[in-house]
Simulated assay, not measured.
Amino acid sequence: MKNLFITTALTLFSMCILAAPVDGARLTLQTEWAHIKYELEKDQQEIMFKSLAEQSEETLSQFPESADIMIWRAIILSTYAGEKGGLGALSLVKEAKQLLEKSIEIDPTALQGSAYTSLGSLYYQVPGWPIGFGSDKKAKVFLTKALEINPDGIDSNFFNADFLIEQHKKDEAKAFLEHALEASPRPGREVADSGRRLEIKALLEQL
């Protein structure tokens, strides 16, 4: 029994040691993403997201089986694609989609279901066939799943609202936006939370 306890303790300790570098790498990516998106001028963002995309590729090569890193590389690629625009952005969102799908296979609840939120947002923002893979039907499925995992999250509610606005369902969207504003602060994500709240308030004003 004593040997079993020691073995278990050592295993858990090793897992914590291995997790620390991954957490640090994820924190670096998410902090830099928030800085670029919410603190830099618009005309600086494309080139900075391109640089961060390159950095995320290197990070993923270091942690190739990390669902968290896959999700953050996908978010960075998607945001970069949005700044880049045009058909040239299509390859970026296709890679982001593949990464999110793979992260779900590894850990569907990683980052509180963020892969489902990001996949859903891609499906309603990317053009449909024959240009892209966009699908409102699939967007609804993934965004609903994101809410099941994280019903009170600021992002899961925000993107559901944004999708509903696209669907001309303003009353439903308003309810999600108001709930998003009630989301608890996320430790270490103060810049992202502040920026997202401004986006939510802007949408509420439009409605």
Rank of each mutant, 00 (worst) to 15 (best):
M1S: 14
K2N: 09
L4R: 08
T8V: 12
A9M: 12
M15G: 00
L18V: 10
P21M: 00
A25V: 06
L29M: 10
H35N: 08
K37T: 04
L40R: 14
K42Y: 04
Q45A: 07
I47E: 14
F49A: 10
S51C: 00
S51E: 14
L52E: 03
A53R: 11
S56K: 10
T59S: 14
S66D: 12
I75T: 14
T79M: 13
Y80E: 13
G88I: 10
L90A: 13
E95A: 08
A96G: 12
K97I: 07
L99N: 11
K102Y: 11
Q112A: 14
Q112K: 13
Q112N: 15
S114Q: 14
A115E: 06
A115S: 15
Y116V: 03
Y123I: 12
G128C: 12
W129S: 13
P130L: 12
K138L: 15
K145G: 01
L147C: 01
G153E: 03
I154T: 06
F158P: 01
F158V: 04
L164A: 04
I165A: 03
I165G: 00
E166V: 04
Q167G: 04
H168Y: 09
D171V: 15
A175H: 06
L181Y: 06
E182I: 09
A183P: 13
S184K: 15
R186F: 10
G188E: 10
S194N: 11
L198T: 08
Q206N: 02
Q206H: 04
